[in-house]
Amino acid sequence: MNIVSEKEIHLLAFGMIAEVLNSQERTWPWAMDTDALRADLIHIFPELKDMPFVIAVDMEVNHMNQPIPPGATVALLPPYSGG
């Protein structure tokens, strides 16, 4: 795992989202909340606009907008399909 500075987050991506980002793990500029992060991501990767995914902050998924602490581990999770 990379060291992230106070102005960055540790960004994880899975499933079809990882394919769009072309990576499973990277550092990313800090955004204040999940809505802001989603907007930043869609700006860089427009394909994400039409793809369903939720955002987990330090392994917690909240379907409302939630704040992101600097240095957090943030994961982009498309619909689960285990089993």
Partner: peptide, 27 residues
């Protein structure tokens, strides 16, 4: 437990076809 594993646990399956194409599984 089985229903909750399918709905709540972050696991993903990619279905790979005989010809090599693939698609993300939908539960």
């Amino acid at each position: 437990i089985v229903d909750q594993i399918k709905s709540d646990v972050p696991i993903w399956g990619k279905e790979v076809f005989v010809d090599g194409d693939a698609t993300w599984k939908v539960n």
